[in-house]
Amino acid sequence: MPISDTTLGSILRNLRHTNDWTLKQMSAKCGIPLSTLSKVEHDRLTLTYDKLLQVSQRLGLRMSELFAEDRETERPSVMARRSVGDIEHSVRVETPNYDYYYLCTELRQKRMIPVITKIRAKSAQEFGSLVQHEGEEYIYVLKGQVIVHTEFYDPVTLEEGQSIYIDAKMGHAYLAADSCEVAEVLGIMSSPDDELMKSLLSIHEEQKKLQKN
């Protein structure tokens, strides 16, 4: 079964070709070293959240546009969309607490956003304020132990193979238990709001700002 080849590298490469820029011109415009940009385009390197934000700002793009290749216009009644992906073809976003691997990024305006997350934060103090966003969220533990903090409930510890479903408007945080260095989960975020991806990206930005402070 073929895997979708839409990666951050292919998105940036297609953007460069659409604008008829050389790699050197693209490098100058987005402020990413030419050698780094070349590795990203060939999927040998990814970019941190800071660098993704820099690229979007310098190129005049919304962050969410870096997570999907094709613009959609009017939706047909039956879309028959399909996307097959894996972590090697994901778009990676790094924050102080988590590494996010967004899956199936070639589909725009998804009502569900699948993401594999590697959790490093181990304490509420290290994590900072609870996060919240539109919609609902489902988390399944793939590796390690995860301590789930929520606004209205006592913390709960999830083992491998266990899961939790929450209202994402309720403040929440996922921490790696002391028994593991890094925990890994599969998360599904859903919302009727087409701007869910934008909402999630704004959380990454806030986490980076808090870390700097």
Rank of each mutant, 00 (worst) to 15 (best):
E184F: 00
M189R: 12
V185Q: 02
G31I: 10
V93P: 01
T46K: 10
D70Y: 09
E159P: 00
G161D: 09
E184G: 02
S4R: 00
H42W: 07
G187W: 07
W21Q: 10
A183H: 04
P76N: 07
E41Q: 13
R81M: 02
L66S: 06
P114A: 04
G31F: 08
L23F: 05
G171N: 01
V55Q: 04
H204I: 00
L45T: 09
D50F: 10
E136K: 13
S64A: 15
Q207F: 10
Q162P: 05
V91Q: 04
L103D: 03
P96R: 01
A124F: 05
T157I: 10
Q25Y: 01
C180K: 06
D167M: 09
V91Y: 02
A173L: 01
Q25W: 01
E181Q: 13
I116F: 03
L103C: 04
V185M: 02
E65A: 14
S27R: 05
T7Y: 02
P192V: 15
K208F: 06
T117I: 15
C30F: 06
D5Q: 14
K24N: 13
S123N: 03
S35K: 15
K169H: 14
T117S: 08
L175K: 01
V182G: 05
L196P: 08
I32V: 15
L186D: 03
A168S: 15
D50Q: 12
D50L: 10
L186I: 08
M1E: 11
R120L: 06
M1W: 04
T7M: 02
L23R: 11
R108S: 15
Q132D: 11
H42A: 14
Q162L: 06
V40I: 14
F152Q: 14
G171V: 02
C180H: 12
H17M: 09
P2T: 09
